[in-house]
């Protein structure tokens, strides 16, 4: 990894003090115990996962379309820019392209500071995002053009790819890019027989962590789909899972994605209403302006007429004289 010379780095063989904190030294079992205890507390509050999504459009005024999505503590801003010609390409491509970039804010992760330059994870996420949203866009409508989608993860608390896909889908809708269907995504962490829908960072990490005991199902799945068409656009799984478990998880995630759709639709409808209202106001104010202008025009016309009449009569009289 390239060193950041603007910061004080300490000696080469130094290690972070965090390695010796009690939180770090906890064994896998202790972490699991803690997590389950926390989840028990949470379950008492009994909240629906789909209700915990906050979404908003029009967050970035400079972009053609933009969205801000919060899922639990994960916060993502996404913006979509106007189609432009594909740079550095000589051949004509019949289908438009989508360029995606996912970036973590340097302060987005709890454990370490993210390097400002994109690393392998950023690139993998960008690729995954592109794969997820590409089937949703009517790409034949803008041949030889490219749409840029930028997702910025402000805070990462697990399932950031799902949040990014949701945000990108909403931003594309906001930008009025022609699409086949609304795209929604959801993710799940699996640990033995427990399934955490929309996992937070702890759950995700624990599900990915290496385990001593063999033959335990563990892994993370992210699924994105076009619910109305019931088409899965991307399915990403890491870990080690039995087939039955994958299929079971898939069914749950499908349902989760479907439940998310009305929430996203609500945001879109709200956005449309807002825009219609704004248009009405604009229309009215334009009308008012027009009336004022008309009045002025009439006044001016009258005065002009009077003047011309005066001139005419003057010249007439002079002729007579």
């Amino acid at each position: 990894m390239p060193l950041d010379y603007r910061r004080f780095n300490g000696p080469d063989d130094s290690v972070s003090y965090k390695r010796f904190t009690p939180d770090f030294l906890k064994s896998y079992e202790e972490l699991l115990g803690d997590l389950l205890e926390k989840n028990n507390l949470k379950d008492e509050q009994a909240s629906d996962e789909a209700q915990r999504v906050f979404a908003e459009t029009d967050t970035i005024s400079q972009a053609k379309g933009s969205a801000y999505v919060e899922i639990k503590n994960t916060k993502v801003v996404c913006s979509v820019f106007d189609p432009r010609e594909i740079p550095h390409q000589n051949e004509f491509s019949h289908l438009g392209q989508i360029y995606c970039e996912v970036k973590f804010a340097p302060f987005s992760c709890s454990s370490q500071r993210r390097p400002p330059a994109p690393d392998a994870e950023d690139k993998a996420l960008s690729e995954a995002l592109r794969q997820a949203i590409e089937p949703a866009v009517c790409r034949h409508l803008f041949p030889n053009y490219q749409i840029d989608v930028f997702a910025y993860i402000i805070e990462n608390d697990g399932s950031c790819l799902a949040a990014a896909i949701n945000a990108a889908g909403l931003a594309l809708t906001d930008a009025a890019v022609p699409m086949y269907d609304l795209i929604t995504a959801s993710s799940m962490a699996i640990l033995d027989d427990k399934m955490f829908v929309v996992p937070n960072e702890e759950e995700e990490e624990l599900a990915m962590k290496s385990q001593e005991s063999k033959d335990i199902n563990h892994g993370v799945i992210t699924l994105s789909m076009l619910s109305e068409l019931s088409q899965i656009t991307s399915f990403i799984q890491i870990g080690s899972l039995e087939t039955d478990c994958v299929i079971k998880a898939m069914d749950i995630l499908e349902k989760e994605c479907k439940e998310l759709v009305p929430n996203i639709q609500k945001v879109v409808v709200r956005n449309v209403i807002k825009n219609v209202k704004r248009q009405q106001i604009l229309h009215e104010s334009a009308k008012e302006m027009e009336e004022i202008l008309d009045e002025k025009y009439n006044l001016w016309q009258k005065s002009l007429k009077a003047k011309s009449y005066l001139c005419f009569s003057l010249s007439f009289f002079s002729l007579l004289a």
Binding site: Q131, Q231, I232, F235, E242, T243
Partner: peptide, 13 residues
């Protein structure tokens, strides 16, 4: 067991 699943290409399933 499945150790990874991913999709390639511009379509959907």
């Amino acid at each position: 067991k499945c150790s990874t699943i991913s999709m390639n290409g511009p379509g959907s399933l």
